[in-house]
């Protein structure tokens, strides 16, 4: 059973058989607008919670995407590098960013659940 958690930076994290899939939320893609460029971390890279690991650029601006967990990147979604608009169209499915193996499962438990994330979005932060 995959469970989805969220960060205050508007990323979603879905745990699938111990591997975390990471993307940006519908709220985030909507706020960014049409994406024109995505740069993803290479598989094998070790990342630390809070580290800037990916870049998304819309027509207007560039933004960082932060590692929501500490661990090792195992796969990136090359499809969104080819077609950044996929993130706008399918932010929580086909527009995923990368998969990683978390070093500490407790990191995942510390993330926001759907309700807390909705409240965070509602608060306008």
């Amino acid at each position: 059973m995959a469970e989805t958690r969220y960060t205050k930076d508007h990323e979603w994290v879905r745990l699938e058989d111990g591997v975390a899939v990471i993307g940006i939320t519908d709220h985030a893609q909507n706020a960014l607008g049409d994406l024109v460029f995505v740069e993803l971390p290479e598989p094998g890279r070790t990342v630390t919670l809070g580290e800037a690991v990916a870049v998304v650029e819309s027509v207007k601006a560039a933004s960082d995407v932060y590692a929501p967990l500490t661990g090792r990147v195992v796969e990136k979604n090359a499809a969104i590098e080819e077609d950044p608009g996929l993130v706008n169209r399918e932010p929580s499915t086909g527009g995923w960013f990368f998969r990683m193996e978390p070093a500490d499962p407790a990191d995942f438990d510390a993330l926001l659940d759907a309700e807390a994330y909705a409240a965070h979005v509602e608060s306008g932060a």
Binding site: G33, D34, V36, S58, V59, K60
Partner: peptide, 12 residues
């Protein structure tokens, strides 16, 4: 207005 719901790309 920086953009409308259509988005910058479509408006452009």
């Amino acid at each position: 207005p920086v953009q409308y719901p259509a988005g910058i790309m479509a408006e452009h």
